[in-house]
Amino acid sequence: MEHLDLLRAWIPGRLDDFLFYLLAVMAIPMALGVLFDRTIIRSGFLLIGVFGSICGLFLVLQAQFLALAQLMIYAVGITLVVVIALMLTNPKLEKEAQPGTAHQQLGSFLVAGALFFTIYCALRSESWPLSSEAVSPDVQTIGMALTTTYALPFEFASVLLLAALVGAIMLAKAERAISDKEEPSKEAGEQNQPATLFERDTTVSSTRR
């Protein structure tokens, strides 16, 4: 940023603030779009945009590594998996969403309220000291923190991911057992998960229209 000294004089207020509001203006409408867009795939792609803007926010806060991890893992990896899962599981993509029953709406209201309350408490209870000092962008700092102070949450995250992996395999296995019963093919034993995935995917795209 030291190269922008002269530009800075032309922009009212601090450059950081300006960038923050720019990114917020990008992120919030896209987040609303994720909620309100009728086409589910479109909202998936909008989610990538939201994650991209949040990556920009991390960059403004000089957390380079965090921003890049956000881009690599959330913006690309997870959202793509979401998009693919949507494509493979929901053949009628353009179907209008049914309004939920009263029970469902109450449940989601309760969950959303509890989540909001938790986040609100977390935001208000901690003190958030401001500092103009630049954070060292060193990966070493993050690595040390992850393996010493935050070792336990780190391990929890890895256990969660392992559970997700095992769950994914179980789901895929169950799917194959059903299709095997319906039409026993001669090389059913050799078929592995990706092959079945892509067979299904062609059927999905042919029933799309």
Partner: peptide, 23 residues
């Protein structure tokens, strides 16, 4: 300072473009 990680993170974005174009 995060050079190669930046390159890897950014070069994983194009697949979003492919999926978007294909859909």
């Amino acid at each position: 300072p995060t050079g190669i990680f930046y390159v890897l993170a950014v070069s994983s974005v194009p697949v979003v473009g492919i999926v978007m174009g294909g859909w």
